[in-house]
């Protein structure tokens, strides 16, 4: 896998954890939330392999239960491990975001 797609995957993973941290969601709802936040380029389907991996790593837990509208759906919630992982992600993101922003936004003259 290329570094670029690995990076994007890691970021998407963090975003998914962050949404699940706030509320329990099911698959479709999660994809809608990501789009609402403007992540339109993320193909909807790409969340499912990630959800499976997060479950495998024990960061989230899926549970089939009745939805308010009736049908049973698989709702995801964070485990304690997951809470640790999102805290870590937040920290890593903050460490990387500012320097990258600075790098990308520097004017022509700043470098001299």
């Amino acid at each position: 896998m290329s570094l670029r797609s690995q990076l994007l995957k890691g970021i998407l993973e963090g975003c998914i954890l962050s949404i699940i941290e706030k509320e329990t969601v099911y698959g479709y709802e999660l994809s809608q939330k990501l789009q609402q936040f403007g992540l339109n380029d993320v193909s909807e389907g790409s969340i499912y392999p990630i959800l499976l991996r997060l479950q495998k790593e024990g960061l989230i837990k899926g549970e089939m239960r009745a939805s308010p509208t009736g049908p049973k759906r698989k709702y995801y919630q964070l485990t304690i491990e997951g809470e640790k992982a999102i805290a870590e992600f937040r920290e890593e993101w903050e460490n990387i975001q500012k320097p990258v922003d600075k790098l990308l936004n520097r004017g022509f003259n700043d470098e001299r």
Partner: peptide, 14 residues
Amino acid sequence: EELLMELLDHIIEA
């Protein structure tokens, strides 16, 4: 089967 149901639900809603 749980995964297949999720994928199916997703398509139906989309």
